[in-house]
């Protein structure tokens, strides 16, 4: 079965980002396909490269990044939500005239159309949020 996953909460504040990550791992372990993971609302913060949790805590952003690398996952961050919250990749930072960026490897920035397309293409769309 083909899944699209939507994540609406950021890491640490809400457990839903952890649950979504665990769900994605379970989906892949059972031989299903993940068409896309779409990050919206504060969920865009799952793509930040600048999180430094205490050493005995998990680093969720890195776990997403590694899961993406291992499984060739399409992790998409909504551009409008990201712009509001100060999250940007190198291209977007350049376009906006900033001299730094903060998106971790494995994510890409795109529009809300990617979420709708994900809903159309997948057999199941699962939302994780508050």
């Amino acid at each position: 079965m083909k899944f699209t996953i939507m994540i609406n909460e950021g890491p640490y504040q809400h457990q839903s980002a952890d649950t979504a990550l665990q769900f994605c791992r379970a989906v892949l372990a059972q031989g299903h396909e993940i068409f896309r993971v779409f990050f919206y609302h504060d969920g865009v913060n799952n793509g930040s490269s600048l999180s430094v949790p205490p050493g005995d805590d998990r680093l969720l952003q890195k776990e997403w990044s590694e899961l993406s690398k291992e499984n060739d996952l399409d992790l998409v961050i909504c551009i409008a939500a990201a712009q509001r919250r100060g999250l940007m990749d190198a291209d977007e930072a350049k376009r906006q005239g900033f001299d730094s960026n903060n998106m971790i490897e494995g994510f890409r920035i795109s529009g809300l159309g990617q979420l709708i397309e994900g809903g159309i293409e997948a057999d199941r769309t699962v939302v994780f949020g508050d």
């Binding site: 609406n8 939500a81 529009g111 809300l112 159309g113 979420l115 709708i116 397309e117 159309i120």
Partner: peptide, 19 residues
């Protein structure tokens, strides 16, 4: 919270996809 405002943004995009 921003949920309602950002929900509307998704709704309007879905219309462009003629769903």
């Amino acid at each position: 919270t921003v949920y309602a405002l950002e929900s509307l943004e998704v709704v309007l995009i879905s219309a462009a996809f003629e769903q």
